[in-house]
Design a protein around this nucleic acid. Structure first.
Lengths: 205, 205
DNA sequence: GTCTATAAAGAGATAGAC
DNA sequence: GTCTATCTCTTTATAGAC
């Protein structure tokens, strides 16, 4: 019994090593550009070991993306409901996103590969959308609805604009290499974004 | 002499056929997922004909992307300088972008492949950024600077927010299949976006 | 479960006829 | 310039020893 458990643990450790290696290669070379040989080398196991844990290349890829999407980025925003002063809350929301996303190569690569493989694996893109994107938008949308003094006319559209600005900032600056051509500090973006959101407030004028 | 011209024309027609076929396959399967055999079949020519026009797979891909980026989307916004009433101008700008982008599968695929191959071909991403994205942002930024009555505090950041909201809308709704999960009409987004941009105007309150 | 070795198919690129 | 046929290397996936 003890032996069986020990075996199982060793096996799980191998599985983790495989997933780690797979992540490196899939994120660098994309799905089609990744060979199982390179994954085996990167993971430090033989190719057959991979096939004993995953049925084929597609299963490995799906398992990797699902694990990353669900386990790591499910709780991007922890609280169940947002509260606090609008400008402070929005700033904290934006900075949480930028910290956990723009400065995290793993998240950036995940976003990139989700977009790249969205035709080949549409279910993966939908899972990502529901797990990573939708939650933040719903939370913010509820907040806008609960704070009519901000003068937001369409809470859903406004929350899309809020996060969309951040997402596109990250995509353009970090993935499309925009920051090497025309740098724009994230601080300036956040300041401007918050000003646009709160400047219609009836408490301000 | 006439024969020579005739030959040249035929050759150019073949080249166009190859680029058309290459576009279909590269956009569907990505760079690594595309085989020269499939391009040949899709284009209706032999593989060797491709190699007589393009040195290798990489050259073909680069030529295709550069042609599409420069020839088709250089003049996304025609005017040299923006003018008109803010809300009308912003609406026209947003609708031009959404019409030429969100409802154009070719543009969507180009954006997707630029993101997907941004590591392998960073120069391509930069060309895309400079040709397609930067121009619109600069035009709008100048307009905001010329219209201080709008109360925009940071023209560059605001123009990033404006176009970034549209880009991310397209990416999320069309590429990540967001519209199949939670549809959001582009009209609502544009209305909200324009309201945010003009509601600080000193002419309004 | 894990390894080495290999089978079978597909890839990029070229040779040679016309 | 264009085609058919082919070469060589890499790919996914499996067989068989331990």
């Amino acid at each position: 019994m003890t032996l069986a458990v020990s075996h199982s643990l060793t096996s799980d450790r191998k599985k983790e090593k495989i997933l780690q290696g797979a992540m490196q290669v899939f994120f660098r070379d994309g799905y089609a550009g990744t060979s199982m040989d390179r994954v085996a080398i990167e993971a430090g196991v033989s190719k057959q070991t991979i096939y004993s844990h995953f049925h084929d290349k597609e299963s490995l890829f799906k398992a990797l993306i699902e694990q990353l999407t669900i386990a790591r980025f499910q709780a991007l925003f922890e609280s169940d409901q947002l509260s606090g002063e609008p400008d402070q809350l929005l700033r904290q929301l934006a900075e949480t996103y930028l910290l956990k996303v723009a400065e995290d190569r793993e998240y950036l690569s995940l976003l990139k590969v989700i977009i790249a493989e969205s035709s080949r694996f549409p279910e993966m893109a939908k899972l990502y959308y529901q797990t990573v994107i939708q939650r933040g938008r719903q939370l913010l949308s509820q907040y806008f609805d609960a704070h009519p003094e901000l003068g937001i006319k369409d809470a859903e559209a406004a929350s899309h604009i809020f996060f969309g600005s951040l997402v596109s900032f990250v995509v353009v600056q970090e993935i499309i290499h925009g920051k090497e051509i025309m740098p724009l500090s994230s601080q300036n973006l956040v300041d401007c974004l918050i000003d646009l959101m709160v400047r219609g407030s009836t408490f301000k004028s």
